[in-house]
Computed example of a mutant assay.
Amino acid sequence: MKRTLIIVGLLLVLVAMWWLLRQEPLGLPSQEKAAPKEPAKVAAALPPLTPEQKQQQTQTNPEKLAGFKAAFATPINLYGRVIDQHGDPVASANVEYSILSFENRPKGQLSSRADGTFQITGHRGASIAVWVSKDGYRRLPGVDGEVGSDHRFAFGSKHPPASSPQEPIVFTLQKPGVIEPLIHVEERNYRLPRDGSPTEIELHPGGNSAHRVVLRCWNKELEPRPQTEPRYDWRLEITAPGGGITERKDIMAFEAPETGYEPKAIIDMPVEAKPSWSRSAQRSYFIRFADNVFARVNVEMIAGGDHFVVWESHLNPKTGSRNLDTDPAQR
C-alpha cells in the first residue's frame, strides 16, 4: 500500500512539472509574445537592358571615333635644323625620332647635313618626338615651350607645327669652350647642425685650404607646433670667407661672371612662405674666392627628416680664370 502511494505521488509530481513547463513565462502576457522576424529585404534586381540600351553602351560616338582615326592618320612632314649656341650649323648631328601611330611607334635615325638641316617626311601619326645629339656637344633642355635639343610635336592636334625647307624648326646643341683642368668634388651628403653651427666644405681637398665654404642652417622642425601645421621655419646660409657668391640661374652657363657677388647666399623658408614653402630646395651658385679663383657648385638642401645637404662642386685652380666648362663626355 505504501509503495503504491509513493508511485502515485511521483507520477503527480511529474505531471505537475510537465504542466508548468507548458505555460507562458511569468510576467509575460501572451499578447506580448515576440513577433516573428520578417524576412530580410532583398534588393530588387535591375531590369535587363533593352537591345537599344545595349547598343548605346557598346556603340562608340561616331564623331569621336572619326576624329581619333583622323589624328593617327595625320601626315607628318617635319623639317629641322641643328645649330650651336652661337647660331652656327652643326653638321652630322645624330637625329632620332619616334612616331605615335597605328604602326606601333615607328622609329628612325638620320644625320644632319653640312648646313645642319634634316627632314623627316612620308609618315603618318598623331605625334613625333625628335632628339638631336653629337659627340662633344651638350644637349640643352627645352624651357618655357622652347625646343632645345628635343621636343614632341603633336601633328594630330588642332594646331599642328608648321615647318618647311625655308623655315625649319631649330634644335640647339651647346659646343663647349676651352676645357681646362677642374677640381671636381663629386656629389656627397653632409649632415648639418640645426642650430646654426658652421659646417665647412673644402672645394680643393688636400690643396689650398682657402678654397672652402661655410654652411649654417637653422631648422625648427623638431620644435613643438600644432599638429595641423606641417610647415616650420628653416634657413640655410652659404659663405665663402673673404670671397663672394652669386646664384647661377642658367644651368648651361659655364663661365663665372666678373661681378655681382654677395657676401652670402641665403635659402630662407619661413612658415609664411605659402604656397612656395618646401622641405627641400635646389640651387646652383658661382663662387669667387679671395685669391680670385672661381668655382661653381650645386646644392640641394633636405630640411626634413634626416636633415642634410647634397653638395657637388667644380673649381678652376688657375687664378683669374672664370672658365668652369667640362668635357660633355665626362659629365
Score class of each variant (00 low, 15 high):
residue 230 P to D: 05
residue 242 G to A: 08
residue 114 A to G: 09
residue 98 S to W: 12
residue 234 W to T: 01
residue 83 I to A: 01
residue 202 E to P: 02
residue 23 Q to L: 11
residue 98 S to M: 15
residue 184 H to N: 08
residue 157 S to Y: 15
residue 329 A to Q: 01
residue 15 V to R: 00
residue 72 F to E: 09
residue 154 A to L: 15
residue 152 R to G: 11
residue 238 I to W: 02
residue 19 W to D: 10
residue 1 M to S: 13
residue 310 V to G: 00
residue 37 K to M: 09
residue 106 P to L: 11
residue 19 W to Q: 11
residue 163 S to Q: 11
residue 100 L to C: 08
residue 220 K to A: 07
residue 213 V to D: 00
residue 172 T to I: 12
residue 263 P to T: 11
residue 279 R to G: 10
residue 138 R to F: 06
residue 226 P to I: 10
residue 94 N to Q: 01
residue 247 E to C: 05
residue 148 G to M: 10
residue 105 R to D: 14
residue 187 E to G: 06
residue 295 A to G: 08
residue 238 I to H: 06
residue 69 K to T: 05
residue 240 A to S: 08
residue 7 I to W: 10
residue 274 K to V: 12
residue 75 P to V: 01
residue 169 I to Y: 08
residue 227 Q to R: 10
residue 216 R to M: 01
residue 306 D to Q: 13
residue 101 S to V: 14
residue 174 Q to W: 05
residue 94 N to W: 02
residue 95 V to N: 01
residue 45 A to K: 11
residue 294 F to C: 04
residue 198 P to L: 01
residue 120 I to G: 02
residue 258 E to F: 13
residue 135 D to C: 04
residue 288 R to H: 15
residue 243 G to I: 04
residue 27 G to F: 11
residue 207 G to F: 03
residue 1 M to K: 08
residue 36 P to S: 10
residue 18 W to Q: 10
residue 164 S to R: 08
residue 323 N to E: 14
residue 150 D to K: 13
residue 103 E to G: 00
residue 327 D to C: 00
residue 261 Y to M: 06
residue 253 A to F: 04
residue 121 T to H: 07
residue 302 I to Q: 13
residue 93 A to G: 00
residue 104 N to I: 13
residue 33 K to A: 14
residue 237 E to Q: 12
residue 47 P to S: 08
residue 226 P to H: 01
residue 202 E to L: 02
residue 140 L to T: 04
residue 202 E to N: 05
residue 54 K to I: 12
residue 61 N to R: 03
residue 264 K to H: 12
residue 208 N to I: 05
residue 215 L to W: 02
residue 268 D to A: 14
residue 130 V to P: 02
residue 51 P to W: 01
residue 38 E to S: 11
residue 319 T to S: 14
residue 42 V to P: 03
residue 224 P to L: 09
residue 321 S to P: 07
residue 91 A to Y: 00
residue 307 H to G: 04
residue 225 R to H: 11
residue 10 L to K: 05
residue 304 G to C: 04
residue 136 G to H: 01
residue 265 A to L: 09
residue 132 V to D: 04
residue 129 A to E: 13
residue 126 A to T: 11
residue 265 A to D: 06
residue 127 S to M: 14
residue 3 R to D: 10
residue 209 S to P: 04
residue 238 I to K: 04
residue 78 L to S: 06
residue 79 Y to V: 00
residue 247 E to W: 05
residue 33 K to D: 10
residue 14 L to D: 07
residue 111 S to D: 05
residue 38 E to D: 10
residue 87 G to L: 09
residue 48 P to Y: 00
residue 36 P to T: 14
residue 268 D to Q: 15
residue 263 P to L: 14
residue 223 E to L: 14
residue 325 D to I: 02
residue 92 S to T: 01
residue 112 S to D: 02
residue 17 M to C: 06
residue 5 L to R: 10
residue 237 E to V: 13
residue 287 I to W: 04
residue 234 W to V: 01
residue 31 Q to C: 05
residue 96 E to C: 01
residue 286 F to Y: 13
residue 150 D to Y: 12
residue 134 K to S: 00
residue 288 R to V: 14
residue 244 G to K: 04
residue 278 S to V: 09
residue 282 Q to F: 15
residue 262 E to F: 00
residue 203 L to K: 05
residue 147 V to G: 06
residue 326 T to W: 05
residue 155 F to P: 05
residue 235 R to C: 03
residue 26 L to N: 07
residue 262 E to M: 13
residue 33 K to F: 11
residue 242 G to L: 09
residue 102 F to E: 12
residue 326 T to M: 03
